[in-house]
């Protein structure tokens, strides 16, 4: 129980603020908590397909961004002076384009909703993985590299024994910092460029003035974020269990 007190107390504070707000404003501005709870129940019992669509889109696009980011980051590390330098400049330009601009481009360029949302999600997450893996390879401990090179490995062995495990570390750390942000931007993309999914359902709730449903969807997104972070933390815990934890006393 002691482990959960920060989450429980923060949740209690949030509910208290919402309750005070619901008492202070009209229901169409801030609905009462029971109305939000009822809307939430309706979502999970009747609109779960919208949630499933969003999650599926997210998983596919995010997995592709991880895989492609890993591959490109490794190639950048292997050919640092040529491909590495070129891609670094290229990725900086891609990252400088606002997410909203990518969403609008996707609407203009692509007819398929899945392609649009997939593209936007991919283009947002991909650069983070590329840079994380590239920096992981670049920051490889020279002493360890030298210690392994004394055994005269070939390039593939160096890649398998040293670079892949090193890059996985950076990949997982990037996953943790990117996952929640990507999900939020993907839902925004659904608001503007999809005909189903959580984002579309939120847009519909907003145009129907269903403020309780809007709150319920937001609450669901908060829950999904927590679950996502929890899953990634578990992956991190298992995959990076060799790392010593530093404790500040």
């Amino acid at each position: 129980m002691a482990r959960y007190w920060p989450v429980l107390s923060a949740s209690a504070l949030m509910l208290a603020i919402m309750w005070i707000a619901s008492q202070s404003f009209d229901p169409f501005v801030f609905p009462p908590l029971p109305a939000i709870a009822a809307a939430f129940w309706k979502i999970i019992t009747t609109q779960y397909d919208e949630v499933a669509v969003t999650l599926l889109r997210y998983l596919v696009a995010f997995a592709m961004a991880i895989f492609c980011g890993w591959l490109v980051g490794l190639l950048m590390g292997a050919f640092r002076q040529t491909f590495g330098r070129f891609m670094q400049a290229f990725i900086s330009i891609v990252q400088a384009v606002p997410a909203l601009a990518w969403i609008l481009f996707a609407v203009l360029w692509m007819q398929s909703v899945e392609a649009r949302i997939g593209f936007v999600t991919f283009i947002i997450a991909f650069p983070f993985f590329v840079i994380a893996v590239y920096e992981g390879v670049r920051d490889m401990d020279r002493d360890i590299l030298e210690a392994i090179e004394q055994f005269r490995p070939n390039r593939m062995q160096t890649l398998r024994i040293l670079l892949l495990p090193q890059s996985v570390t950076h990949l997982i750390i990037a996953m943790r910092s990117t996952a929640a942000m990507t999900l939020k931007l993907m839902v925004l993309a659904e608001v503007l460029a999809a005909n189903n999914g959580i984002g579309r359902a939120m847009a519909t709730a907003q145009s129907n003035f269903s403020i309780d449903a809007l709150f319920a969807w937001a609450f669901l997104l908060v829950l999904l974020n927590f679950v996502l972070i929890r899953i990634i933390s578990q992956i991190e815990k298992r995959a990076l269990r060799w790392r010593a934890e530093a404790v500040v006393r």
């Binding site: 401990d141 002493d143 360890i144 030298e146 210690a147 392994i148 004394q150 055994f151 005269r152 024994i161 040293l162 495990p165 570390t169 990076l240 060799w242 790392r243």
Partner: peptide
């Protein structure tokens, strides 16, 4: 260079181990 595979075993001032292994 490659012919030296398995000829020299070296230990350094720092252990230089692979931390994930």
């Amino acid at each position: 260079h490659k012919s030296l595979r398995g000829v020299i075993g070296m230990a350094y001032q720092a252990p230089r181990l692979l931390p994930w292994r």
